[in-house]
Design a binder for these strands. Structure first.
Length: 277
DNA sequence: AAGGATACCTGAATGC
DNA sequence: TGCATTCAGGTATCCT
């Protein structure tokens, strides 16, 4: 479900409520989402310690604890992290409840339970390979046109698959990739290395544009996504192609098509995003 | 190195 | 109404 703008909104939304709070207890409802270490050890490492900071890297949420350990959460498709008041019912699909010292809770809920919760020491971050190998963040100083040029060079992947690969750019997912390719007028089937300088420049700008719009709109909510306080995003109202199969292109009125690229549903405008010319 | 299929899971939507 | 199939904001792994 959540791509970088959604995860960013979750983190920003709950930060002021949970930082400097101690985790006084942890209730495990569906323990299979905890991947490392084993549940008993996981609880031991967190209970009695305070949350010093909450940050995001790619689609990962990282809680820094005052004992130097990191609690790392990835929401995958349907995970939610919900700050829930003392007197409020917890989500129907709650898996793990972190009880905070002020009586309120931080709840990890996940319908499909594909998400992952892990605890590691700062010196064993490489244990979480997906986090360790992330590429540059959109909107960051590191993410320059030159950076994009360099990573595209020599890649025979289709551009859609290339952009979904977190090792290249961190945080893009199925929605924002389709939107960025539309804005830069690039067909999703194009081979990465075939993009010319003009196209790379447009793509770079489009990625930053869709990601910042997504963040400002509070994320995109189709079904499961909720921010850390349970609210929906509104970016779904501003999408150009994603989930718009059969509807007219907002720029040229051509009917938006849906196909499959690298196993993922892919929306595009056959007129704005030509494969030839 | 790349790309496909498969696996992890459940629920909603669609098809017959 | 019921039952089967398909698909979903993701990624790791195994195999050509």
């Amino acid at each position: 479900m959540p791509e970088m703008p959604e995860v960013e909104n979750i983190v920003r939304g709950i930060r002021k409520y949970i930082v400097n709070q101690k985790i006084v207890d942890i209730e495990i409802i569906k323990g299979d989402v905890i991947k490392y270490p084993e549940i008993k050890k996981y609880k031991e490492l967190l209970i009695g310690n305070s949350i010093k900071a909450i940050d995001r890297r790619g689609k990962y949420i990282i809680l820094k604890m005052d004992n130097g350990i990191l609690s790392v959460i990835h929401l995958r498709m349907t995970g939610k992290l919900l700050y829930t008041l003392q007197n409020q019912p917890i989500d129907k699909y709650s898996c793990v409840v972190f009880y905070l010292e002020d009586g309120n809770k931080l709840v990890y809920a996940d319908v499909r339970r594909l998400g992952t919760l892990e605890v590691v020491n700062t010196d064993e971050l490489s244990r979480i390979k997906g986090l360790y190998t992330l590429g540059a963040e959109p909107l960051s100083k590191e993410f320059t046109i030159e950076y994009l040029q360099n990573i595209l060079k020599g890649s025979k992947s289709k551009i859609k698959s290339f952009l979904l690969n977190q090792k290249n750019i961190a945080g893009l997912g199925n929605i924002y990739v389709d939107e960025a390719l539309f804005l830069s007028k690039i067909n999703p089937l194009r081979i990465a290395t075939s993009l010319n300088d003009m196209e790379i420049k447009r793509l770079h700008e489009a990625i930053n544009k869709v990601i910042s719009a997504g963040i400002e709109d509070g994320g995109t909510t189709f079904r499961d996504y909720r921010n850390g306080l349970g609210g929906k995003g509104s970016h779904q109202e501003h999408l150009y192609v994603y989930n718009r199969k059969g509807q007219p292109c907002r720029l040229c009125q051509t009917v938006i098509e849906k196909t499959t690229v690298g196993g993922r549903g892919t929306y595009y405008c056959p007129s704005c995003q030509r494969l030839d010319s």
